[in-house]
Write a protein that binds this DNA or RNA. Structure first.
Lengths: 147, 147
DNA sequence: TAAATTTAGTTCGTGTTAGAACTAAGTGTG
DNA sequence: CACACTTAGTTCTAACACGAACTAAATTTA
């Protein structure tokens, strides 16, 4: 067993890091006229032929109940559309409209460039260190949730 | 300048790690009858003589507009109270009521024990690695937001 | 095949979230 | 002192978050 004085600083560092990212990223996304979940969806659907709501939810980490509302708003703005799935009438294929494709082509590169500035001085070794640490920490939580 | 193929995996790892933590932690907190922000507030106020709303917001990373509502609900349940600040009439001191203290004494150790199970096999070196990586990554976002 | 179970999405209730506009109170400068 | 400015908290709006309950359509089981 571990003591809080050992692991609490790790959890605080995780939350503070995530918040810093979210705040920084969202400021740019809002300036592009989207909310962060909306951007995630548009970015995920870009350069694809569409996908089911379940698949979209898995990729964006948005739960299905929330996804309905976010997609509703994007449909209302004419950026995505729901089309029938060929063989399974429970499913829908969600995909970008031409207007949504145009938005994707504009905002995705813009936001990538914005984020790239952060990492101008970071090398491959930095990324390996971050990804290695983050994936190990993620497993810490996932291994317990199975039990 | 950096390429998305380099830094996107880092960002995805961060988001997935954070989500895994949040989901795992929240499941326990909800079982204790609190929401995650409510738990944060009770945990922050525990073993203190109270603090101003601004200070509480800084520690819990809850913005002031949100804090009003969360504190309202805790006041409604009789767990915290707002008292006048001695010298500055704009401020309030928010602190736990006796009932809130009792709740803190029950749920805080319980949740710590729940989280400690995750880190049963982690040593000091693991925590140093995680904290070092997370703090460095956090600075990546903070150094740009100043500019 | 009929019943039981699973899966896909929607709806609903409660709570959180950020930012912006607002009020009240303190601080600074002339 | 009077004015501009800052700070503390609340209110407001739009959107998101999650779980639970629900409908409809598939799939499994007997």
């Amino acid at each position: 067993m571990s003591r809080p004085s050992e692991f609490l600083p790790t959890l605080q560092a995780l939350v503070q890091c995530y918040q810093a990212f979210e705040t920084f990223s969202a400021a740019d996304i809002r300036g592009l006229g989207l909310t962060p979940p909306q951007f995630d969806i548009v970015a995920t659907l870009g350069n694809t032929a569409g996908m089911t709501a379940t698949e979209l939810g898995e990729k964006t980490l948005i739960t299905k109940g929330t996804l309905t509302g976010v997609v509703d708003r994007l449909v209302g703005r004419g950026l995505v559309e729901r089309t029938a799935h060929g063989s399974d009438r429970r499913c829908q294929i969600i995909r970008l409209t031409p207007s949504g494709e145009a938005l994707f082509a504009r905002v995705f590169p813009s936001h990538m460039a914005y984020m790239a500035e952060c990492f101008a001085d970071s090398g491959a070794a930095d990324h390996e260190r971050w990804q290695g640490a983050l994936r190990a920490l993620e497993q810490i939580f996932r291994k317990k949730e199975k039990a």
